[in-house]
Design a protein around this nucleic acid. Sequence first.
DNA 1: CTGAAAGCGCTAACAG
DNA 2: CTGTTAGCGCTTTCAG
Lengths: 345, 345
Amino acid sequence: MPKPRANSTLSDVAKAAGVSTSTASRALNGLASKYRISESTAKLVKESAQRLGFRPSQVARSLRLQRTGLVGIVVPDLSNPFFSAIARAVTVSAEAEGFSALLADSDGSVEKERELIDQLVSRNVESLVVCPVGLEFDHLEQVAEQGVPLVNVDRCKAESSMVQVTSDHLTGTRQAIELLVEYGHRRIGVLQGLPGTLPCDLRIQGVREVLDEIGLSLDESLIAGDQFSEESGYRSARQLLSKYPDITALFAMSKPNAFGAIRAICELGLRIPDDLSLVTFDDVEFAEFMRVPLTTIAQDVPELGRRAASLVTEQVRLGKPPLQTMHKVPVTLMSRASVGKVSPS
Amino acid sequence: MPKPRANSTLSDVAKAAGVSTSTASRALNGLASKYRISESTAKLVKESAQRLGFRPSQVARSLRLQRTGLVGIVVPDLSNPFFSAIARAVTVSAEAEGFSALLADSDGSVEKERELIDQLVSRNVESLVVCPVGLEFDHLEQVAEQGVPLVNVDRCKAESSMVQVTSDHLTGTRQAIELLVEYGHRRIGVLQGLPGTLPCDLRIQGVREVLDEIGLSLDESLIAGDQFSEESGYRSARQLLSKYPDITALFAMSKPNAFGAIRAICELGLRIPDDLSLVTFDDVEFAEFMRVPLTTIAQDVPELGRRAASLVTEQVRLGKPPLQTMHKVPVTLMSRASVGKVSPS
DNA sequence: CTGAAAGCGCTAACAG
DNA sequence: CTGTTAGCGCTTTCAG
């Protein structure tokens, strides 16, 4: 019993139409007029193709043309809305340009990220959009130097020649901390994400700057946490709040961090914003329906994705990287109810 | 200036090692022992490969082997957490089996879905996981019949020979409606998703069944809405509530539907659950932190993805579809605060 | 133990 | 207006 998966090939079509494969190819690729193929044969070929359910093998085509029409995407966790929004933006732009998207999920592991990028390159993707784990970049830079247009999104590397796009973490953080300061907060706990990543570092710098400017200095012991995860947010909030009861506000670096913190705050019997203010990076869907609407620094996530997409397509079209390598996308402070004035005590 | 993108090929490696391409290929593919290649040459080849940064072209390999190692995924909206969770599960399982995932976003359009599936098949994906728009299935069935292992997730087709996996919509709905009934609700408004899709139809059937069993019948005019979107939820809730003030509970078919409804409810100055109860399909992240924690029918979304993934891999391994075609994944009623007793009036 | 040669399905000179 | 031919990079008989 032969497999019924008789995917007909170009030569089948050619045979059926009684022409050579070249003629068939040309007719099907709309080069009939260029090669002055008679209308009748062109039509005949198209009909045969139709009848046989012919689908050109993109694999063969790719090999021959040395063009796969593939863009690779790597994210640390596709179930995180932040990354899925980026993946979507890139995928949709790619589709619009006739490209297909090869998606890979590194599950937060640099090692896996390395392997996956390797695989994608082996599959001859014409460009790469990667949201890296963010602590090591040598593999990214290497790939970029090998001539594969690559853009690094979100967790950037400072001082790199890579094309990168990320939010304006510094300004966003400054706005948030300035708000806290204005409301009288002086002891601010920082629930950090993965230390060593640029978003994390820049946000700490933002806090430091604002405090410096009012003559205070950042107390390093008020920084806790080690991941952008809920668990880290919970753990670090508990730790900070029980050790330093004089803290009046918490600055969380991600939505999961913030929700972990809220869980901890509830357990400790504290109320937001009466006992404690909370502000977080990442906007929260339907924040207005929360028990206490969260004040957030909203990133324009789809814009991050679109920018990344347009930067890679530009690179493949022009054959060279853009002049500007670091692209900052503005953020917006969404002032809601979770930040309150410090009660005079 | 020649392009520096000198991707070395197998023949480059062979040349460098002073052997033929066949030997090089065998050595690199771990067939050294099988072909009794001398240790020394094998090592030599591997070193040359290393030195040249050789990456085997998967395109050429695919063409030769007639195996791409690609699994195609199609979803209507990757930025919807429901679908990104499925996409993630499939992607991760695929990676674990040495496959790569080709992802496509149909943006809710059947037409685009058709095109994308066509493209994926052209790219010779070895299997397909599709979350279809859900109103037309001929293209899916066609592809499956052509011998491409395909599994349809979520918006299934009744009475189809396709392999399908979806939540147990009927039981889930029944549980939710039984809860409402138990709490004294008799006039229940239904905020439906896309009519004609199986999840939507089954859920309506669930409502009908429970009402029938207590001697009531479903009032069709209490059904409104036409999408699984927030906008539809908002619109339908407003419409229903203003037209039928005797409604005491709302059953929403999706998280976005529910949030749209909440917006409408707030605008109308009604309170949950005092004036109105609300229950929805889809679990809501951090529902406990909402102003009114939502009672939901939680789907096990990652399980949907994993099941889909294992069903396609099983199919490619066995070369034939599984005996059982329809796979139902259990759901869980999460009873929270948004459902209350009907106040005696 | 290794190499020569064919061929996966397609396109593009080149030659009529 | 159309066909012949070569070759993209790889694996795999078959033949030493």
